[in-house]
Design a protein around this nucleic acid. Structure first.
Lengths: 213, 213, 213, 213
DNA sequence: ATGTAAACGAGACGGTACGTCCAGTCTTGAA
DNA sequence: TTCAAGACTGGACGTACCGTCTCGTTTACAT
């Protein structure tokens, strides 16, 4: 898990220098993350202000600014601490089954309160590159690596075609979920996710080509 | 093209009552839209403020508020007036070719300055439902309908499987583009778009199943 | 009377250009000055914050910042508008009588609520040269000129010695009053002021020297 | 010399109980007072913050707060320790000469860096009664007693009129100096101080009255 | 030698006010 | 009736210091 506070602490005590001064208040840290996440869930990004988080956490604004450099960083930290852990990967030995199961779960979670948090972070990320970077490195990329491992196994077992580009495949499977999350043309639910995955797995064409590309 | 101003004018002169008073300044209207779009392109959503638009357009803030109810509406109007017309649909008689060609073009356009405008609108749309609605009804839905028509034709010609769900298919083809637009894990370019489309069209599996679903 | 607002207005309409835009809200202006003065009287400089003045005047902070550049400028404006007009000059034909009468009145006024306002302004003036300059040009200097005129008349009538330096004389007569105001060794009251003035007028020495200096 | 630290130390060891624990760090104490005075001289009251003093003295904020209860107390302590000792009293046997000599010296010192420190203390004293009390008891009153002694001697020797009120006389002589210090209408220099003193000593009137008051 | 007690550095904490930026509304005179 | 100009209320921003607090460390005296 990535947390700017952790980084700061690490930076402050690089090797063996004994830490001095009043230690960080872990209760305040937890309250801030909890408050950040709750506000994001309840009010979305519109109501997510540092002042609101401080008030709800019962904490001074300065305490927040001491540890998180921006709104986006705080939102990310709240997301990672509170809601990100809810998604885990299955492992059944079948790439197709595992991925569909995982995509269903992701759709279900993103379709709920966690989705509101995510949209907020991504919206903030459009205006602040650091937030986007934190999201990518702290959340998106790690998840992709997990999913990539499943795809790899599927290819090795002969389940999936060897010619596929794994990165592109991940875009094809996860892209639609983010699309529905951010452009609410229709709700994001597990049934839709499974149908979408099935379309991508089986392709759209009537006949399988002998040679392709 | 949707423009609140048009609606307002229409509402103001419902049947035949002759309009009186100073007529709307079309030069101001054009300058505002142009300024909105330019700022969006240059500064992204962070620098897009009503005051900045007014200053750049050489127009009073009130003039903007008279015609557009919110920041998001103005961004949408600027987008529609200036950058949206750049994307058109081909028609070659082959669904696969037409869609790939279109996805390439969309990727190219979204990968440039227009993409910055779009991310700004979508970010704003996360906080303001009206902006999102305007985007969906004024831009996303119409484009989907065009694409859907191509898919339909493909099905009717036997090019595409009859069982596919057209809406889901559109999600599968367009989702990844929005994903790459909003989550910049990697750049958005035509080559990637074609590869992605190919993956979806041909599917990922090694063998075609006899019965599916 | 000096008022930054007046300067701004004057600067905005230098010659004949017709003023445009919403006119300044005079009620708000008056409420701000009144609130500033009241807070100064009641709480002294410690409680004099822009936020407190805004709250009491029922006005937005920005409205204050639009017209007064600093705390000190606002305090000065409040002082000039509300409490400065209370002191006027007598004119009886006798410099001694006039000055004593005036010094008594000044001591009485500075010994009351107005004195608290003055100490606040002078304290603020120690940290902000602009405040001090505004105080000197807008209040102190004009009063000195009035007093100087009386002294002049006294000299011309032969009441006062011709050799005296008028500026130094003013320091000698007014200095003790500011001293008692700012260094409260003892209260500031009219009796003391008259005694003090008498000492200065008549001198301290037992015998008049034939030649001096 | 008054120093809260002295008081505290005295209070901590009232009778005979031997003191235990780490002794006060005199180097830190000296560094703090030096830093306080230097900052007051260089930046005036505006730059005089506890944090700045601590940083300059290379000391923790807590060490300051342990010994001085407030900003004003610290400023006073710095003033007394560093700059106050610079003024001493002459003794020539002539009240007039001694006082003029002393007033010249005071004007010279207050016209320089020491003056900046004094204005800072007096400004702070307007907001904090304790600071003002410390200034009066620790500095102003003792100096007045010294000056009063000279005046007394002058009266006893028949140099000065017996009817004069000594307190009022002190106000008349020192008031103008504080006035020029705090209201910089003109610079504070020895020539002016002597002229002023001469005016007060000799009075302003053309003729000596037969009976007065 | 070893406690014990106070002083010290470091720095986190809850707060207050700052001065600024924009949002969105309102009021005027001119076109 | 629209427009330019610009004043208004109001909310949040990020910063600077305040005065308090909690630590781990240091220093000297008392045992």
């Amino acid at each position: 898990m990535i947390d700017i506070a952790e980084k700061k602490r690490a930076a402050a005590a690089p090797t063996g220098r004994t830490r001095t001064g009043r230690p960080r208040d872990e209760a305040a840290r937890a309250a801030i993350l909890k408050a950040a996440d709750t506000i994001l869930e309840e009010k979305g990004i519109g109501g997510f202000t540092i002042e609101a988080v401080a008030a709800r956490a019962g904490v001074a604004k300065t305490t927040i600014y001491r540890w998180w450099p921006s709104k986006g960083a705080l939102a990310m930290a709240g997301f990672l601490a509170e809601t990100a852990p809810k998604i885990s990967y299955p492992n059944s030995g079948s790439a197709l089954a595992d991925l569909i199961s995982q995509l269903r779960r992701v759709a279900a979670v993103y379709g709920g309160k966690t989705g509101r948090v995510l949209t907020a972070i991504l919206a903030e990320g459009q205006r602040d590159p650091n937030t986007m970077a934190a999201f990518i490195e702290g959340y998106a990329r790690p998840r992709r690596e997990e999913a990539k491992a499943i795809l790899c196994a599927g290819v090795e077992r002969g389940e999936l075609r060897a010619e596929i580009d794994l990165e592109v495949t991940l875009d094809a499977l996860y892209g639609p979920i983010y699309y529905r999350l951010l452009v609410p043309l229709a709700p994001l639910d597990p049934e839709w996710a499974e149908t979408m995955a099935t379309h991508v797995f089986f392709g759209l064409l009537t006949s399988k080509p002998t040679s392709q590309h």
